[in-house]
Nucleic acid binder design. Structure first.
Length: 645
RNA sequence: GCCGAUGUAGCUCAGGGGUAGAGCGUUUCCUUGGUAAGGAAGAGGUCACGAGUUCAAUUCUCGUCAUCGGCUCCA
């Protein structure tokens, strides 16, 4: 007998070798029906895999993360089976589950391609195979046996996979006529998969290395009920409506022009006003935190970047140097602001008493991103960083680091960004070849970051091999409407540039010392931040930030004069208002302005003129009653103050 | 940069070897209407760009550019 401990800590005894499915059946038939996998001592097991020792036990349904993993992983196998049937000679690499479904990387026979037109055929074949309710059968195999199996199939991909595995840990799963090297876990049979859709195809380099052959990656998603698939597709459509590229166009915030060049955003008046307000907001915060503004040019001599080390590292893949009429002069579009700021620091001698010095600049930079990487406002070739560089003594590093974290957290709070994650990026654990700077300095910097995060109580993930080449960093990440992760705020420690630029200050001992540098950008870049802000708010910006806080809607043209008068008075008390004086009926004006996501509508007609009042309507909610002009301006200003608290 | 897809009016999209259509928007006129679309008329397109095939190309083929979904990359 074995002891099985349930999540609620109750313990039951079962015969050794019992399966998760049998345990579930013992509890209720319904549970057994909904179960897709079980957890055994933290490992996910097939429902049909015997449990042979005492276990902490959990039953996973489709809605559980582990359940989805098993379900989609099994679906990947099902899709592979369909693909093998439809494309004889196809070779398979790997097929995991991902956040929103699953994919399989395949190598198609010479000359064959899969395109969107083929999706229905694949789906149909999958459904047909699913309905056979073929069991997923687990089988252990020795390494030799496994190698032999795939050598006979002439499958270099699986042979490569197996070569990296230890003998004794190799398992295969078979369903129907399909056998695949796999760790599992899987569903009991293919009949669990009731609804599936092939979502997209993409090229994916073998083993993620662009020097390798490109395989075809087929993405799919599947569900235990048709209804869930329909709901998921509706949800996707909804998410697409929040796409900043779509809303940016609708709300007239920004645009692109192929004539100007790809990845070079053009900010329209409304977008520019929004951005300006964001910039002013941050400038105010930064002033409170002791930052000083600086302004630097958009280009710098090539020599500047040779000094900083960036030219050696990125020069070949960047916008190429700008030549001048004289032969020996070359300038680079600035890809970052730090070298310029270093030169500002060097402009005069510094005492230890002056530190920390904090130079802030909304600095526009240009980076030659690969064309396929460009993406709306989130990945562009010309963008403005809310950049600042802090030059401090080593003993001030941690304190400064923490202050920067405070700024980022304040900004995120003010803009209702709750679902962010933080990531500490450190060096590769062993391979240090790609980093510049001494080991000792790296150690110190990494330690300062980790400690700062601990003190601030941030829930951080540590990623190795993600550090910049000059130093470790802390990034604030958020997800966009479609679940893609983007880095916003960043704080980076740099011991390298002070060295390269020979920055120094005079210490209390009257000796020269090297300052530490912190790069930081709470927004990351104005472009990316606005993009993510659009998606988070679905275009309904906070009152303090939005360009038009209210619009006045005269019932008819007879009341336009009163409306204009109200606008002037509200503008004088810092409320941003416009008048919709078009010759349209009030219902039409309301509809149009609702769609423009203007927070408040002020309806004025006969009654309002007579009583010097406004009829107030809130976007998305409807009529909220009558106010005087003074009451409304106080109402708005109070709300704005509340938001910025 | 790579794999796949897309490109028709300001926007969203339909169409298709014989040089184009809808809705919204815009303009003018009528209407002066009380909480999510009042009516009429008009303007607006080298069908992304360049070649090729054809009697004829916006439609088919190829190339270029841009965009979209991924991969790689992201100082």
């Amino acid at each position: 007998m074995i002891k099985v401990t349930f999540p609620d800590k109750t313990v039951k005894e079962f015969p050794k070798g019992i399966t998760g499915l049998e345990i579930a059946k013992g509890i209720s038939n319904r549970l057994a029906k909904e179960a897709v996998a079980v957890g055994v001592n933290g490992e996910t097991y097939d429902l049909t895999r015997p449990i042979n020792e005492d276990a902490d036990f959990a039953i996973y349904k489709f809605n559980d993360e582990q359940g989805k993993d098993a379900f989609w992983h099994s679906s990947a196998h099902l899709m592979a089976e369909a693909l093998e049937t439809l494309y004889p000679g196809i070779k398979l690499w790997v097929g995991p589950s991902v956040d929103n479904g699953f994919y399989y990387d395949v190598d198609l026979p010479e000359g064959q391609v899969i395109s969107e037109k083929d999706f229905p055929t694949i789906e149909k074949k999958m459904l047909e195979l699913a309905q056979k309710k073929n069991e997923y059968v687990r089988k252990d195999m020795s390494k030799d046996e496994a190698l032999k199996y795939y050598t006979e199939k002439d499958d270099e991909y699986k042979i490569d996979l197996i070569s990296g595995l230890e003998d004794g840990t190799i398992t295969f799963y078979k369903q129907g006529n399909f056998t695949d090297l796999c760790r599992g876990p899987h569903l009991p049979n293919t009949g669990y998969i009731k609804a599936m859709k092939i979502m997209s195809i993409a090229g994916a380099y073998w083993k993620g290395d662009e020097k390798n052959k490109q395989l075809t990656r087929v993405y799919g998603v599947s569900f235990p009920k048709q209804k869930l698939l329909s709901e998921y597709l509706v949800l996707l459509e909804e998410a697409k409506k929040r796409d900043h590229r779509k809303l940016g166009k609708e709300l007239e915030l920004f645009t692109f022009s192929s004539r100007v060049g790809q990845g070079l955003p053009l900010w329209l008046p409304k977008g520019a006003k929004l951005r300006e307000r964001l910039e002013n907001f941050l400038k105010k915060v930064q002033t409170e935190y002791g930052y000083e503004p600086v302004i630097t040019p958009h280009i710098g001599q090539k020599e500047l970047y040779v000094t900083s080390g960036h030219y050696a590292k990125y020069g070949a893949d960047s916008f190429q140097p700008i030549k001048t009429p004289s032969d020996d002069e070359e300038f680079l579009l600035k890809p970052m602001n730090c070298p310029h700021h270093c030169e500002i620091f060097k402009a005069k001698p510094h005492s230890y008493k002056d530190l920390p010095i904090r130079y802030a600049e909304f600095g526009t930079v240009y980076r030659y991103e690969q064309s396929g990487e460009l993406h709306g406002l989130t990945r562009v070739r010309g963008f403005t960083q809310d950049d600042a560089h802090i030059f401090c003594r080593p003993d001030q590093l941690k304190e400064e680091f923490i202050k920067v974290i405070d700024i980022v957290l304040y900004i995120f709070k003010t803009l209702d960004f709750e679902n962010f994650t933080t990531q500490i990026s450190l060096r590769h654990k062993t391979d240090r070849s790609k980093y510049i700077g001494s080991d000792e300095n790296w150690e110190k910097a990494e330690q300062a970051i980790v400690e700062s995060c601990e003190e601030k109580g941030l829930n951080t993930v540590i990623e190795y091999d993600e550090a910049a080449f000059y130093g470790p960093k802390l990034d604030f990440m958020v997800k966009d409407a479609l679940g893609r992760s983007w880095q916003l705020g960043t704080i980076q420690v740099d011991y390298n540039l002070p060295e390269r630029f020979e920055l120094e200050y005079t210490g209390s001992d009257n000796e020269k010392h090297r300052p530490v540098m912190i790069h930081r950008a709470p927004f990351g870049s104005m472009e990316r931040f606005v993009a993510v802000l659009i998606e988070h708010t679905a275009g309904k910006f906070p009152l303090w930030l939005t360009s038009e806080q209210a619009v006045i809607l005269p019932i008819s043209e007879r009341f336009n004069d009163y409306a204009n008068d109200v606008m002037k008075r509200l503008n004088l008390s810092d409320v941003r208002v416009t008048v919709d004086d078009r010759n349209e009926k009030i219902g039409k004006k309301i509809r149009d302005n609702e769609l423009k996501r203007i927070p408040y509508m002020l309806i004025v007609g006969e009654k309002e003129v007579e009583n010097k009042q406004l009829s107030v309507r809130k976007q998305g909610e409807g009529d909220v009653g009558i106010m005087t002009i003074e009451e409304f301006s106080k109402f708005i200003n109070d709300r704005v103050a509340q938001e910025l608290k």
